[in-house]
């Protein structure tokens, strides 16, 4: 049984601007990616950009997801800017 937490990760520009590579949040039944973003953005400062005008991509358990995707205890939820490889 996994702990009732979400493992949040940040990559690239977001990781640098938030000064945070990863953190844990309590998992709330029924919550979506969008709820997680709202909670983090409410911290203010650089965190507000998570609900700003720049696109924020999300992956849940290492698969691309949408802001409407539901997240559950034990999930790995990663936020990052649009990708630029290749």
């Amino acid at each position: 049984m996994s702990k009732a937490i979400l493992n949040i990760r940040f990559f690239a520009r977001l990781r640098e601007e938030l000064g945070t590579e990863s953190l844990e949040l309590p998992a709330v039944p029924g919550q979506t990616v969008n709820d997680v973003l709202s909670e983090l953005a409410s911290r203010g400062g650089a965190w507000a950009q998570l609900k700003g005008t720049q696109p924020v991509m999300v992956a849940v358990n290492q698969a691309m997801a949408k802001h409407s995707t539901q997240v559950h205890a034990g999930d790995e939820v990663a936020f990052f800017p649009p990708v630029t490889g290749g």
């Binding site: 990559f11 520009r13 691309m64 990052f80 649009p82 990708v83 630029t84 490889g85 290749g86």
Partner: peptide, 11 residues
């Protein structure tokens, strides 16, 4: 497809 979906970021 790699350029727009694989999670790489260039600085």
């Amino acid at each position: 497809a790699l350029k727009t979906s694989a999670p790489f970021w260039k600085k």
